[in-house]
Design a protein around this nucleic acid. Structure first.
Lengths: 243, 243
DNA sequence: TCAATTAATGACTAGATAGTCACTTTTTCC
DNA sequence: GGAAAAAGTGACTATCTAGTCATTAATTGA
């Protein structure tokens, strides 16, 4: 390897607001007005179980056949639930997709917010590394918690946004914008090549997404532990101005 | 820029079989047995026009709504053709997709074949550049001829391969494999970092695809002419062993 | 010209699909 | 316990869809 990456840079003072460990459980969208039952009671428990069953069955089917290729009947059959029950909890397929994706979206948004904050304070290469490492760790955490949702995102993100895929498309747009904004900041600090920020940001995001999709598809990528370092040094040698 | 790229290396002796300038016109799949009519006659001309109208209408709709979201009725309505006529020329939607994609697939396969041949002879950095430049030029040519088909490919390639998307998925698999094989060759020649070839190949392909999709979606990427150089130097500085 | 052949048409069928609703079962809470 | 509210059910409707086919129109070639 030709780049020297500081192994485990001290987590320099950085705005880490960990208040929001992104709720990964998917809750019913709304509660009845008169007799909702006590939290932890049977009504509450049944609602949570139904929502979870429908989300789980939906996710599996979406990954297998693509969002557009799955019908509500498929979903309720797989979840072992009557059709009417689906419509008690969700407006339509788009609403289900939204419920599946939104916890991941929240985590990803947080990761970028924190990365951006750290980067704005970075004035040295050391802090540049630290900021990117923070971002990478937060994103890795999100991926680790919801790998199948990430795969669904990668699988559907480029398809036209009509109907049920709208929430996924919205997340894709936000990620691209946040990555570009991050790169623009790095360039402001003169730590980066004078390449159009959208170009270098998309190049990096594209690499990561492709590798991640391959990994989540079970492809053999050799020793997994080596990938992050390999990727980081590729990116940094490719984009960073030399010291 | 920190890498020195030889501007326009002489196109060293390289196996360029240009016999097959990939027919980009989409022909009817089969001919009637008894009275097909003379080539250039009315029957022949009508057949070609119908196939083209159906392919064009299909492509537009696929890009707008996604392959899975388009019905045969949509296609024949857009093409101004009766439904029965569709089934005279194509088996089903998958067959139409196959007809739309296959000229591009042929060109891409050729580009990789030639790139691989050039690379196998490359023993110097100069020839490494030349081989990659040859590949890039061939691919750029294919993209320039069929930008909308390329966009369709990028849009649908990660979705599950069932049904109509099968031909697109097949092309995606071939491209990934050929890119990996190319990288493995470069590594054999000791011109490349000791990174798992699948990792570096997918990283490069991922960048290119992401940028290409953004470009084909009309995003602003700054001065277009600068992108290839920026990309090549990013890739080479990121992956190449230092001289 | 005209019979043979191919091409084009759109109504039609069988099956699938989203969403609804009257009815039954479960839970709440007095 | 029991009335009231919520949750669960699956048959039902109206719509959409892939694919067929009898009929009509256009083209061929002698």
């Amino acid at each position: 390897m030709s780049s020297t990456i500081p192994k485990k840079p001290d987590p320099e003072p950085v705005a880490v607001t960990d208040e929001d460990a992104a709720e990964s459980e998917r809750l019913p969208r709304s509660l009845p007005s008169k007799r909702p039952g006590p939290p932890g009671g049977k009504r509450d428990e049944n609602r949570r179980r139904r929502t979870r069953e429908l989300c789980d069955a939906g996710l599996d089917l979406f990954l297998e056949k693509g969002i557009e290729g799955v019908t509500i009947d498929d979903i309720v059959r797989a979840a072992g639930v009557a059709k009417g029950s689906f419509y008690r909890y969700f407006e339509d397929k788009a609403d289900l997709v939204e419920a599946i994706v939104s916890p991941l979206a929240a985590q990803v948004d947080d990761a970028f917010r924190e990365g951006q904050a750290a980067l704005e304070k970075a004035s040295s290469n050391r802090r540049l590394f630290a900021a990117y490492q923070l971002l990478a760790e937060k994103l890795a955490g999100a991926i680790f918690l919801q790998p199948l949702v990430v795969k669904l995102y990668l699988q559907e993100m480029r398809t036209p946004s009509a109907g049920a895929r709208a929430p996924i498309h919205a997340l894709a747009t936000r990620i691209a914008d946040e990555a570009v904004s991050l790169t623009a900041t790095a360039r402001t600090h003169a730590l980066w090549r004078p390449v159009h920020p959208r170009v270098s940001a998309l190049a990096v995001v594209g690499s990561v997404e492709k590798l991640l999709f391959a990994f989540l598809s079970g492809e053999d990528l050799g020793e997994l532990a080596e990938i992050p370092d390999a990727l980081i040094s590729m990116i940094l040698d490719g984009l960073r101005l030399k010291d």
